[in-house]
Design a protein around this nucleic acid. Structure first.
Length: 824
RNA sequence: GCCGGAGUGGCGGAAUUGGUAGACGCGCACGACUCAAAAUCGUGUUCCUUCGGGAGUGGGAGUUCGAUUCUCCCCUCCGGCACCA
């Protein structure tokens, strides 16, 4: 027999699969249970497929083949998230149109996926930059617009001077652009926003409905950041103005000794006439506006300016006719314009940041929440005092006496008692007392979707001569991205250069009408693509209700953990918003989610083009074949763990496949009961491991099986065919080749996953560890359902225990099939 | 600082509800084959050892007949977030 050579067989089978159109799913087939398995679709970068894609593809492809063999109608589609900055930046550099470079990149990706033997269904060409796709992105935008989920506002945005565009908060990493690392500046830009905050509560509570990794759920919850508190109005003395604050600690309001506004707060301008030191104030406003968020964060020391001539009235103290009712008002950049109301009541005794600010400006601290007593704080675990035990004896006494509020700095942060009332109860009582409104506030902000870029989905909005925004209308979709622009960034949206676009608008809507020049954030494109696959060729609808009902939600979604916040949150928001508009009838898009780990280089560093440590799958496929490459990616570590790339390990998988190949020479029609037993055990284990995404242990089990067979003279043909069937999701090419060679019919992926004979997977005898005082001293071979008496007898007869149990046995613990333990 | 996750041989990693720690693979060593090498096959491979044993899953306590697994404290590494009122 010829030797195993991946080069001779892999291309052959890839061609045969293609000729048979083997991986196109019959989406209307009602005879089988559906299973929708989805890879996070691919951004077609110029550098091609990397090993991370390879691991993800190997995993989902293995699962695709496995579930298909198990009688399910499996949808396993792939598409391209092809709008976005890199292609545009490339165009700026080279002059090559993004359309062209994107198409080339997509061809490269498809080619690479093909040589890996990945069974993707590309039907319908789900490529976000194609008009047939973005027509529906725009259609959905139109629905959002008509239903009041889109609004336009001028806002301070993160501006990347290098990309010359707006960057979402979520895309700012440590104050720098997450794509080019340029430091972000603040700039006022008008743009469209999606009202994702309307769905904040549902986005939190519905996390209970999904089977996602625990940490992903927690992180999403924290990202949305719900906090319970109250909105309370503070009057400004001698004016009609009111200052609204949000606080999670209304119980501390009696201790509010000053107020702080964000420098951008509108009240600063509103009270201009009354502010005695307006010059100083506006200088501070200007300087903080020049600061980026990074710079604001850097200076931990508190800065600010008092609004002289302005006093706020502490409503609680006023109502109680107490002293210290009038409190000063400051502006400071430690208060953020974008969170809460952009203003706070400052309670230095119970908030560390307020404490620091009060120290800086010599402001009064009033302690109004008393810690629980020492005993109470000890027993009521999380009630209170962070550092009580580390305080000196005198300090501890003062705390107990309620004389000081104390933690690290002197701030009592947690709850305690307000007068004799638990501060949790006091929150409600005091809110009511001062006319506050109990409410929730979220860290989540609305989603800014406007981008002053070329290579994105055009926002299908036009403006009347009066400046009113209007959706272009369904009949004008797709609202095409014009070609007559050049991409050199000027700080203005590139589409302003398009003559065609302006003419198009005037022709359709009349003279004086103007187009919107911005394009959409690419996260919009990727927020609904999974809805398109079930009906990807539909040109009447984004996806038909019938197909959505059949296929959604996605049964298993696999992709990187880096999408925990943005993509996964936005996609969930889309589904909720579309459900509210009656376009969908389910709550959550992804029933089960798993992340694949990162593939790092040998030193544990992330692979990146700039570091020059990227390994391309092509090279691996050339040398070891697609089967070995795929299996190595799955064998190296559990799916969710990171992989340290170590090329030398791949030879183990190649040797394994070589060994499988050799066993096919031993095939006979006679039975080999021992080999049969092992094969049936392997079928069982590989089946359950694959189902549970434990690919590494499934592969190890197949290795053990082949190691066993390699020591046998013969192996039964039917048994070996079964083995090839379970191997085929992992190593499809070599399995097909051997299957054909020994007379298998059809393609392996069309076969039924073999059944195992349960009786064959149970051993007559097991090796049982015999322990003395929990330490293993010898082993006995015994039936797994032997009685304790039998087991003891066998163990004692063995003799090896004699010297350990000579002193007499106190107790015996016996777990059949597991352990026999003598306690002496 | 806060929130996650993880620490097991030379390396990647196994180990159902607490039940024989180190499966499987890489590497390494020795042997067979060979003029020789590669490949392949076989054997061995946690550490220490006076060859009786002893120690051992980041460290320290605890529960248990028995702990990689459960509880408490601590250390280290990785990822994410960060003046969120």
């Amino acid at each position: 027999m010829e030797e195993y050579s991946h080069k001779k067989i892999e291309q052959k089978w890839q061609e045969r699969w293609r000729e048979a159109d083997l991986f196109k799913t019959d989406k209307k087939d009602e005879s089988k249970e559906k299973f929708y398995i989805l890879d996070m679709f691919t951004y077609p970068s110029g550098s091609g497929l990397h090993m991370g894609h390879t691991e993800q593809g190997a995993a989902t492809d293995t699962l695709y083949r496995f579930h298909r063999m198990n009688g399910k109608n499996v949808l396993h589609p792939q598409g391209f998230d092809s709008f976005g900055l890199p292609a545009e930046n490339y165009a700026i550099k080279t002059g090559i149109h993004p359309k062209e470079s994107t198409n080339i990149a997509i061809e490269t990706f498809r080619g690479q996926m093909n040589i890996l033997g990945l069974a993707y269904d590309f039907t319908g060409d789900v490529t976000t930059s194609k008009p047939s796709y973005y027509k529906w992105t725009q259609w959905i935008f139109g629905k959002f617009f008509e239903n009041g989920l889109v609004y336009k506002k001028v806002s301070k945005v993160n501006w990347c001077s290098s990309c010359n565009t707006v960057i979402a908060n979520e895309q700012v990493v440590n104050g720098a652009c997450d794509r080019c690392d340029t430091e972000i500046e603040q700039k006022e830009v008008p743009g469209f926003f999606f009202k994702i905050t309307d769905f904040a509560d549902d986005l939190i509570t519905d996390l209970d409905k999904v089977d996602w990794p625990e940490h992903t759920i927690k992180n999403q919850r924290n990202w949305i950041g719900k906090s319970e508190g109250a909105y309370i109005d503070f009057k400004i003395k001698n004016t009609d103005s009111k200052l609204k604050v949000f606080t999670t600690r209304p119980d501390t309001i009696f201790g509010a000794t000053y107020m702080v506004l964000a420098p951008e707060h509108p009240l600063v301008k509103e009270l201009k006439e009354k502010i005695e030191n307006y010059d100083e104030v506006s200088a501070y406003v200007n300087s903080s506006q020049k600061k980026t968020e990074l710079e604001r964060m850097e200076g931990k020391e508190k800065t600010g300016v008092e609004l002289k001539g302005i006093k706020a009235i502490n409503p609680a103290r006023e109502k109680s006719q107490m002293d210290n009712t009038l409190i000063p008002v400051f502006i400071s950049d430690y208060v953020l314009a974008g969170y809460g109301t952009g203003a706070i009541m400052a309670v230095p005794a119970h908030d560390e940041r307020d404490w620091d600010f009060a120290d800086e400006f010599k402001l009064q601290k009033v302690c109004v929440i008393k810690p629980y007593s020492f005993e109470e704080s000890k027993s009521g675990s999380q009630r209170n005092l962070i550092d009580f035990d580390k305080a000196s004896v005198e300090q501890q006494q003062e705390i107990l006496d309620g004389k000081i509020c104390h933690n690290r700095k002197g701030v009592l942060m947690g709850s305690g008692q307000f007068n004799e009332m638990d501060s949790e109860k006091a929150k409600k009582a005091i809110s009511k007392f001062v006319g506050g409104k109990i409410s929730s506030n979220y860290r989540l902000r609305d989603w800014s979707i406007s981008r002053q870029r070329y290579w994105g989905c055009p926002i299908p909005i036009v403006y009347s001569p009066e400046g009113e925004a209007k959706f272009v209308g369904e009949e004008n979709l797709p609202w095409l991205l014009p070609d007559d622009v050049d991409f050199i960034p000027t700080g203005e949206a590139p589409l302003t250069k398009s003559k065609e676009l302006k003419e198009r608008v005037e022709k359709l809507f009349g003279k004086g009408w103007t187009p919107e020049f911005d394009t959409m954030d690419t996260f919009v494109d990727s927020s609904w693509y999974f809805l398109r696959y079930p009906d990807s060729e539909n040109d009447k609808d984004f996806s038909s209700a019938e197909m959505l009902k059949k296929w959604m939600p996605v049964d298993l979604y696999i992709g990187g953990a880096e999408h925990t916040y943005m993509h996964l949150l936005y996609a969930r928001f889309f589904v909720k918003a579309m459900k509210k508009m009656g376009l969908l009838d389910f709550d959550e898009p992804f029933k089960k989610l798993r992340h694949q780990g990162m593939v790092n280089d040998q030193t544990g560093k992330k692979m990146s083009k700039s570091k020059g440590n990227v390994v391309a799958p092509d090279d691996m496929v050339e040398r070891f074949g697609a089967d070995s490459t795929r299996m190595y990616m799955l064998f190296a570590s559990p799916l969710e763990d990171d992989i340290l790339w170590n090329e030398t390990n791949i030879v183990g998988l190649y040797r394994f496949l070589e060994k499988v190949w050799k066993q096919s020479e031993k095939i006979t029609n006679t039975e080999n009961p021992e080999a049969k037993k092992i094969i049936h055990k392997t079928i069982k284990k590989v089946g359950s491991d694959t189902e549970n995404l434990c690919f590494n242990t499934a592969i190890s089990e197949m290795m053990k099986c082949v190691n066993f067979i390699s020591k046998q003279e013969t192996v039964n043909k039917e048994d070996f065919l079964s083995f090839l069937e379970i191997l085929s999701p992992y190593a499809p090419h070599v399995s097909e080749e051997l299957y054909e060679k020994i007379g298998g019919k059809g393609f392996l992926v069309e076969q039924k996953w073999p059944e195992y004979d349960a009786a064959l997977t149970v051993d007559d005898l097991v090796t049982l560890g015999v322990q003395v005082n929990g330490k293993k001293r010898c082993e006995i071979d015994i039936s797994p359902d032997a009685s304790q008496e039998e087991a003891e007898q066998v163990a004692k007869k063995d003799g090896c225990l004699d010297k350990w149990i000579a002193g007499g046995i106190k107790k015996v613990v016996y777990v059949p099939g597991r352990i026999l333990n003598f306690v002496v």
